[in-house]
Design a protein around this nucleic acid. Sequence first.
RNA 1: GCACCCAUAGCUCAACGGAUUAGAGCAUCUGACUACGGAUCAGAAGGUUAGAGGUUCGAAUCCUCUUGGGUGCGCCA
Length: 604
Amino acid sequence: MYRSLLTSRLQSAFAAAQIEVPAGFDVTVVLAADTRYGDYQSNAAMTLAKQLKTNPRTLAQSVADQLQVADLCEKISVDGPGFLNFTISKDALANKLGELLTDDHLGVPRVELAKTIVVDFSAPNIAKPMHVGHIRSTFIGDCLARVSRFVGHKVITDNHIGDWGTQFGMILHGWKTTLDHDALSRDAIHELVRVYKSINAACATTRKDADGNETPLPPDIVAKAEALRETCKDELVRLQQGDAENHEIWKSCVRLTIEQLDKVYATLDIAFDHCLGESFYNEALAPLVTDLLKRGIATHSDGAAVIMSDGTKPAEDDPFMMRHKTTKDWVAAPLIVQKSDGGFLYGTTDIATLNHRVSEWKADEIWYVVGSTQSLHFRQLFDTALRMGHTVGLTHVAFGSILGEDGKMFKTRSGETVGLLEVIDEGINRARKAVEEKEQGLSDAEKDEVARIIGGGSVKYAELSQHRLTDYKFNWDKMLSLQGNTAPYLINAYVRTRSIFRKLDGDWNLAGDVAITEPAERALVMKLAQFAETTHDVLPDFRPNLLAQYLYELATTYHSFYEACPVLRAEGTSRETRLALCEATSRVLKTGLGLLGIKTTERM
RNA sequence: GCACCCAUAGCUCAACGGAUUAGAGCAUCUGACUACGGAUCAGAAGGUUAGAGGUUCGAAUCCUCUUGGGUGCGCCA
């Protein structure tokens, strides 16, 4: 990978020029911002000159004089205030092209220190609608897992399903009173959601109007609702105490939901190594709280067991402290691990889960791909882990909310949210229509397969091409668009590469002579060469959109090359070179899209 | 009230402290249809990067303040 090669050469040149680089100062080479000056650039001389109080141009020149890059660059220059610019040579580019054709890993280096990384993502709740918000966690988490695995980490994916908790009081009662068994066998998730929603609505004591203002309902309805709540609570208590009937119902709910989820994940080409839901940790919760209390990490407060500030951090940085609303005094913001009625909460489960991942899986890192609304919870969880003596690296890979057309949050309670399944289905339907219009002589089964790839890919790409932290408004047309910067555009580039080889008569020598001459050819190799760098750029800040953007640029570069440089009509070395470029593009696109979790098709 | 996140073209989004023009897509307008697959390409137009200060040779990016929005803040997950 040019960037790291040039960086190490530059570091050597600094040493050879006897320029002392202060500790903590990074001499790096990056992709050129403006290709008129070169392919790569370094700003090290300018930044360092500031620290050393010397002339940046002179400094840059003395380093340039020591640079040993004849095998990579045809030109290095010092420009402007002290930029070092590198232009990759045609021979080096030809070598790179050869590497892309022979190396299964496409020149992407493996990490030096492979870690065991647990990626926690998706995490749907039983009987609660899997709304569009789950798209973000599912796709971002899956992509990060794929990229980490590709660069050599040991990755363990775990779907921490919400299969335990207070919602089961309502579900159990609903199962016994309003369940439609036919509907359940047709679409279990949908029916369980319906049951949950109807009971939940009947439990309401207030009504929300369009502005979000709550008004109390009439007393007779409130009385009924409160009685119903008691009933549901009783059902929950009986479940937690091991009542045989309720336990059976619960098991059915979990089984039916997971069976259906498996199909969804299969459609989306997403797989988990583990699916340990909250219920898996039930037995561990009571001993955990006892232990936390014994060690003084948790304390009793108002009848509950809570974790509070240990006073080791300044109040502003302490996740267990906040300002009081009116008095402005610093007051405790505890993490509750046991309710005053003895019940446990998701914070308790999360600690138990963390323990399990460290002790059983030997996790070096755990990544939680969860919405940014949970950021305080994770700060508290991570701080607790630290106090417990864990050294595992913990990251909350947060993402923004998906908003309604009105710019406000989708609310699960108030009902009509767009379901994840609907989005996927609609995406596949739209893709199917587009496939029909093309008439490429595909069979119905092939059209279905292509529609799944294009439709599913479009939804994934719409999500992954965005910065994870920004909120965005949900929009059917945008999510499912087939034009512009979308999955079909990228897949079409791939289809064009394959089409070339279908038309190719006779054998093609993979190791034939290549020579880069045309600007469009050069631009394409340069872009291909950057795959390695981009892949490694994804992980430090958990940014799949960098890879998505790269692949879009690669597709654009390929389409331009395709228009400018005839492949099959070319002759001799030119033809060999262009075929090699097509094959290399094909490989990088397929692999890169694969890292985003998007499949490719040879025809569409 | 306090904390965290956000504000870039009409709309939806990019941009690694760098180079007289801050990039894409959509929408709008011009071209390329004997096309190695047009789900394509070439081009035009569109911006005081919310506002004001500061650090720097250099700021959309870092710091401070202001404004506007989002989220969270004791027994839901």
